[in-house]
Design a protein around this nucleic acid. Structure first.
Length: 488
RNA sequence: GGUACUUUGGCCGAGUGGCUAGGCGCCGGUCUGCAAAACCGUUUACGGCGGUUCGAAUCCGCCAAGUACCUCCA
């Protein structure tokens, strides 16, 4: 594949040329949601980040298998691996079946992702549907001698693993120091060391989510699902594993150790992590209680929001920052994005109706190549957007009749805008869904044509009445040099 | 305490050695019956102190402030 895509690999802390293991196939695994709460802005970031990567890899010609898991079991409330499963807890509180809770929030998550125009992954495996695979994976680790059974539970032996390999390579931790600094366990724990983590947990009598295993009736540890499902659908070695930066430790560190222990090899070639969204400089997170759900954004129903914001505004806002930077949320920043997006999309709509001339009076530049270069540089979407805005100026100048454009240049601009705005950035033109009704459009055109005549006759009363009435119904009327434009 | 990282103009946010990021806002102008839109122009940017260099927002050191991870979280 002819391209120069470089992506930042957390493992090496460098940008590396992307070369897949089995060209033209690419395997990509991204940590999805734990479905026990409403989807919030924090869920949108990785979904959009890796949606961009998914779209761009496909544009480059790869055949991508994109796996994004759904965690519906095994997520414990606290470490020490003594807590209660999140889904089960929520189910008990709401008096629902655990699977009912998971299904409800999973539906909610998918709906939000659809609104954000995030493409569905190739496979969305549920942890609860892969208990066998997780048991088998755990058995492999036991067989390899990197885990031990304790009172019906199975734990990963971090110290043993670290003596043969390097536990902490992804997060840059020194496990020996960690073991010294971590406080001593109380005598009750089944774990030999606090750094050890559960592969399988024996279920307490009151625990409602449970499965049979060689060790006990119980449930899998949190980290094992990704190793098991990633291996199942992408093979023992695959190209990209992504997720939020907060998962680097311990989740991804544990995954690396599990896979190496069970399979004897490195599973993942490129580790990619998106940064967090902050709110007043602090991470937006469920546990901090400062998160805003996506539903609240779409309706404006949150104290921190001055108004509702469309899904495309949220998407655009996120894409205006590089995925490895934190992005600080504020209503003011979102409003700025909203206006910018509106102007960009109006220009994009205008571009479709631009009239070509003999020749161009203005250089359109090599927009296509520049945008590709920006994408190739670790998916630099803010730069792509800045180039689009620069070209927007040309579109508007031609639209105003101040510059001319040749058919060839016009075709190129239309093609590049379509490619980057719709196909790669995934920004949907507003109102495309409601655009279908031809008669309605003609009716509005008719009204505005009547207004145009009134204007010619200097009948300002009639012309203003038409404009003001339409405006009050929610239409936006813009006069142009020789006519009008409108949108709803 | 350990690890990773951040600090850019009114706000958001790119940028790793020299050349305009971009968006939003503000102000002035063009256009217009008015308005909106559009266009043009303007707006004291690189936390502080040193160092390297012909040249640093960009490299190095120290200091300051802040964030994340080290317990669930995207």
């Amino acid at each position: 594949m002819e391209h120069q895509l470089y992506i930042y690999n957390t493992l090496t802390r460098k940008k590396e040329r992307f070369i897949p293991i089995h060209e033209p196939n690419v395997g990509m695994y991204v940590c999805g949601p734990t479905v026990y709460g409403d989807p919030h802005l924090g869920h949108a970031r990785p979904a959009i980040t890796f949606d961009i990567l998914f779209r761009y890899l496909k544009y480059l010609g790869y055949k991508v298998r994109y796996v994004r898991n759904v965690t519906d079991v095994g997520h414990l409330e606290n470490d020490e691996d003594e807590g209660e499963d999140k889904i089960a807890k929520k189910a008990r509180l709401d008096q629902l079946e655990p699977m009912e809770v998971a299904q409800y929030y999973y539906n909610s998550y998918r709906k939000a992702m659809e609104l954000l125009n995030v493409l569905p992954p190739s496979i969305e495996p549920h942890a609860s549907g892969h208990i066998m695979e997780q048991i088998e994976f755990t058995q492999k680790i036991l067989d390899a001698g990197y885990a031990y059974e304790s009172n019906g539970s199975v734990y990963f032996d971090v110290e043993k693993y670290n003596s043969d390999h390097h536990y902490g390579k992804l997060s840059g931790r020194d496990i020996d120091e960690m073991m010294e600094t971590t406080r001593a366990l109380d005598g009750q724990s089944e774990k030999r060391r606090s750094a050890d983590f559960a592969l399988w947990k024996k279920a307490a009598p009151e625990h409602i989510m449970r499965w049979k295993s060689p060790w006990s009736e119980g449930f899998p540890g949190w980290h094992i699902e990704c190793s098991a499902m990633g291996t199942k659908y992408l093979g023992e070695e695959f190209d990209i594993h992504g997720g939020g930066m907060d998962l680097i430790f311990p989740h991804h560190e544990c995954e690396i150790a599990q896979s190496k222990a069970a399979l004897g090899k490195e599973s993942v070639k490129y580790w990619m992590h998106n940064n967090m969204i902050t709110i007043n400089g602090q991470k937006m997170g469920k546990s901090l209680g400062n998160f805003i759900t996506l539903g609240e954004f779409f309706t404006g129903g949150h104290a921190l929001l001055t108004k509702a914001f469309s899904p495309m505004t949220i998407r655009f806002f996120i894409l205006q920052a590089h995925y490895r930077s934190t992005v600080d949320f504020s209503s003011e920043a979102l409003e700025a994005s909203e206006k910018g997006l509106e102007r960009l999309m109006e220009g994009y709509a205008r571009l479709q109706n631009l009239k070509a001339s003999e020749k161009s009076s203005i250089e359109i530049g090599n927009l296509r190549e520049k945008c590709k270069e920006a994408m190739n540089d670790d998916l630099n979407t803010p730069i792509v957007i800045s180039y689009l805005f620069e070209s927007l100026r040309i579109i508007n100048l031609v639209h105003d009749g101040k510059e001319t454009i040749s058919q060839e240049d016009l075709d190129e601009l239309q093609s590049v805008f379509k490619l980057f705005i719709e196909d790669i950035l995934g920004l949907q033109p507003a109102g495309t869904a409601s655009e279908g009704i031809e008669a309605y459009r003609k009716a509005v055109d008719l009204l505005l044509n009547i207004r145009l005549e009134a204007k010619k006759n200097k009948d300002w009363t009639t012309s203003d009445k038409i404009r003001d009435e339409l405006t009050s119904y929610g239409f936006e009327i813009k006069d142009t040099k020789d006519g009008f434009e409108w949108s709803l």
